[in-house]
Amino acid sequence: MGRAGKALKQVLETYSISQNQVAVKMGIGRSNIYRWVHEVRDPGAEMVIQLRDALHQINPTAAEEFVQLYLGHPPGDGDEE
């Protein structure tokens, strides 16, 4: 448990994005974001997609990094040559 939460926490800290900003973009309570960031609960697959979309609206680079971290691929460690 916690891969999405760890990825989200890192991205929020790196890009200075507040839990509230994400919650507002997603139309959910900040307490949900708090639970994910602190690994109390994992977001479901649909919520992970909504998280990515919300982050993309705030900062597209943050959204990309979230996806990479969530999938277990550090940013810049892709298959591009």
Rank of each mutant, 00 (worst) to 15 (best):
Tyr70Ser: 04
Arg35Ala: 15
Lys9Cys: 07
Leu69Trp: 06
Glu81Phe: 14
Glu64Cys: 12
Ser16His: 09
Ser16Val: 00
Pro60His: 03
Arg52Met: 09
Ile33Asp: 08
Glu65Lys: 15
Arg41Pro: 04
Val22Thr: 08
Ser18Pro: 01
Ala4Pro: 00
Ile33Pro: 04
Leu55Asn: 09
Gln68Asp: 13
Val37Ile: 10
Leu71Arg: 14
Arg35Glu: 12
Gly76Ala: 09
Asp79Cys: 01
Gly72Ala: 08
Val67Asp: 07
Ala62Met: 00
Pro75Trp: 04
Gln57Arg: 07
Ile28Arg: 10
Gly2Lys: 07
Lys25Gly: 09
Gly29Thr: 10
Gly27Asp: 06
Tyr34Ser: 14
Ala4Leu: 08
Met26Pro: 03
Gln19Asn: 10
Asn59Tyr: 01
Gly29His: 04
Glu81Thr: 10
Asn32Ala: 15
Lys9Ile: 02
Gln57Phe: 01
Ala7Gly: 00
Thr14Ser: 09
Val40Glu: 14
Val40Ser: 09
Glu81Lys: 13
Ile28Asn: 07
Leu55Tyr: 01
Leu71Pro: 04
Pro75Glu: 06
Gln57Trp: 01
Ile58Arg: 01
Gln21Tyr: 06
Val37Pro: 01
Lys25Cys: 14
Val48Trp: 00
Arg30Thr: 15
Gly27Asn: 12
Asn20Lys: 11
Met1Leu: 10
Gly76Glu: 05
Arg3Lys: 15
Gln57Pro: 05
Leu55Arg: 01
Pro75Lys: 06
Lys9Ala: 15
Leu12Met: 15
Thr61Arg: 15
Ile33Trp: 04
Met1Tyr: 08
Val48Arg: 03
Gly72Lys: 06
Glu80Ile: 08
Met26Lys: 13
Ala63Phe: 02
Ala23Thr: 03
Asn20Phe: 04
Gln21His: 15
Gly2Val: 06
Pro60Ala: 08
His38Trp: 09
Gly2Asn: 13
Met1Arg: 12
Arg35Met: 08
Gly5Ala: 12
Gln50Ser: 13
Lys25Asn: 15
Leu71Ile: 06
Met47Thr: 11
Glu46Phe: 11
His38Phe: 13
Leu8Thr: 07
Ser31Lys: 09
Ala45Gly: 07
Ile17His: 07
Asn20Asp: 10
Arg3Phe: 00
Val22Trp: 08
Val37Phe: 04
Glu81Cys: 02
Val24Arg: 10
Thr61Phe: 07
Ile49Pro: 01
Glu13Asn: 11
Leu71Ala: 10
